[in-house]
Design a protein around this nucleic acid. Sequence first.
DNA 1: AGCACGCCGACT
DNA 2: GTCGGCGTGCTC
Length: 805
Amino acid sequence: MMAVAEVIVDVPTMQTNRPFEYEIPDSLVEVVIPGVRVEVGFGKGKRKVQGFVMEVRDHSDFTGKLKPIERVIDVKPVLSQEMIKLSYWLADTTYAFQISCLQTMLPNVMRAKYKQFVVASEGFENDADVKKLLDNQLTLEITKDTEEQTLRKIAKLKRAHKIDIEYVVENQANSLTRQVITTDLNTDQLLEAKDKLRSNAKAQHNLVDFLLSHHDDLPIEVSNLENQFKITRATLKTAEKNNLLKFIEITKRRKPVGINPERTSNLELTEEQSTAVKDISDSIVDDKSDTFLIEGVTGSGKTEVYLQSIQKALEQGKTALMLVPEISLTPQMVNRVIGRFGDQVAVLHSGLSSGERYDEWSRIENGSVKVVVGARSAVFAPLDNIGLIIIDEEHEASYKQDDNPRYHARDVAKWRSDYNNCPLVLGSATPSLESRARAQKGVYKLINMTKRINNHALPHVQIVDMRNAENSAVKGDFSPLLQDNLWRVLKRKEQAIVLLNRRGYSSFLMCRECGFVLKCPNCDVSLTYHKNLGKMKCHYCGHEENVPHICPNCKSKKIGFYGTGTENIEKQLNEIYPDARVLRMDVDTTRRKGSHAALIEKFSKHEADILLGTQMIAKGLDFPNVTLVGVINADTTLSISDYRASERTFQLLTQVSGRAGRAEKEGHVIIQTYNPDHYAIKDAAMQDYETFYKQEMYLRHQSGYTPYYFTTLISVSHQIESQALKQSFWLKKQLQTALSDKAILLGPSPTMIARKQNKYFYQIIVKYKHEPKLHEKLMEILNDTQGEARRGFSIAIDNEPQHID
DNA sequence: AGCACGCCGACT
DNA sequence: GTCGGCGTGCTC
């Protein structure tokens, strides 16, 4: 009997997108188990790659000779059975390679780094050519910087079998350990020991004094002692010999959660809240995988419902997972969860370094954490025995990953909820149409929360018609009504939020003389300015260049930044209200790590009167002193060519309005728009989701979009534009043969950014209700176009895209 | 992806 | 003749 492992290898191509079988050597039988990473030989040469063991069997049907597993990387599986199963489902539904799915599910440090070294073949150690190539060293590393000439020489010597290439698979994931010191002696014993020290042993005396005064702080990190207290390692070593202290290695948690917020306990619930908690709790207790949709107006206390439901899961000895959009992962939110559950909580946000992220992953994986809060990718948190999954602000587009694997966290959460037999709770003031429609059909259980806590009135919303000359002509972008109300807020020493609704939020360079815009040579996009680099950069291909001071087109000096507009609005605010403290929050001011949180902190301490910003200020923030919200231009998101434009506009306006008057004080919202009669704007002003929902559903029905139809977006790209177009017509024809005549095929049409990294993009949209053959056909197409892929042709499939552009 | 094999044109 | 270009098939 032979032990065989099914391994997914780290080679992301269509042809290798299946398990390969490897022999498990006797010495490794005990350790090669599903979920561990292994190092295996792959291909004809001596190439080595990392792989994931999916399954272990006792025989193989493979007719050839099996290669052995060379090394086991993990002592303990990094993938649970749940994650292994999930990866199959994920690969299938997103059309992504399974290896990509596995890597997405794990912290980045688990991704192998590959290195190649040139070494002399046996017997050629003294060969003149070899010696010259290696420059008398034993090895030569081949990197991406290795010159073309050298590569040629390497190829030549290799053909002559004078050299070999050695492959090294590096594992980046090792939890850092740190050295700490502690002592078994109590203070009396230390004093006693101090007396015994030689009087000239000054450093030792100081050290003992230090230990006495910091006795309660022990253990203390050695690096801290060296840096902060200037105690050398030599001193410590001597003290160790004298049995004054001892060294211990502990696994370092790179990111200790900041200052612990004050512990809170359950708040008293309103009737609506307690019904919600009860319904969810019942599902937790009964191990039912129900999906709840909480449709709750801003300020209705959804968070408390989440917290008490989590509490229930913990009481049942289970764990809980809570997803929030990255942007609402602010200290405000995080503190509320940590405040309730203390160090049982792990927080996964984009601010973590990859090492920190790995540490948090380990804490979750080894069971020391019961609650996980995080953004999209936290849906893969290695929690065991999940009792509850929550997705806050479930309508947020950021829950969908926009590169491979293009998964939606909501779908993954649903899968895990089914696997764990636990409820999934979706919460929003403005649910996505598809979720709300599912609730309508009874697929989800709808929980309506219509009352604000303490019966706070909803903010008073006014729409300003900017087509009216009186409003727009006065002073820049501020209507008299908005100006007036800002004055009042300032006079009352309250705070205001001003939202500039912009879709693109990067600053590009434009000549005011001739209109020239600095563009990327490889992509059809304008370059954006990166403050920290001091250079112009392309978002799509990474191309960089210096900032020109004269216009390359007309030689004028009037070339400058044309940004989000926030700077311009800031200038206007400063002119109208010279005494007001304005805080600008946009990509430029939040680029540095932590600056986003710092600005929020500053505003919540009332160190500024007006918070000015884009989308990012609309979400999840709670400032009790804010009584006015002004929206400069509500329309911009309406005019985009996406069928979700109205939905997005409605959501944004409703949410930003909810920022006003969250405490005792009444809130006031002023929305400036050129489309005052548009239903998305009117309904947002009324904070009337249900009316909006009905209207939007009607329109979606008319135009045949989600949730009435499923959509799949297929984009085709090629170096040569005509080829891209030709292939996309071929693809459309392929689809037509497989699909029923009820399916609607749109396109091919060029994408909004028609060229990226010197490739031309066309897209086809498939709208359908029931096409059982579509999935199979798309898989077939992916397989068939393999050969073409070599010639720069590629296909990307996006199931249920969030935006079509 | 990355390697070997194999088939063609232009050079020590 | 053979070196090295690229197109093709395959990887347990």
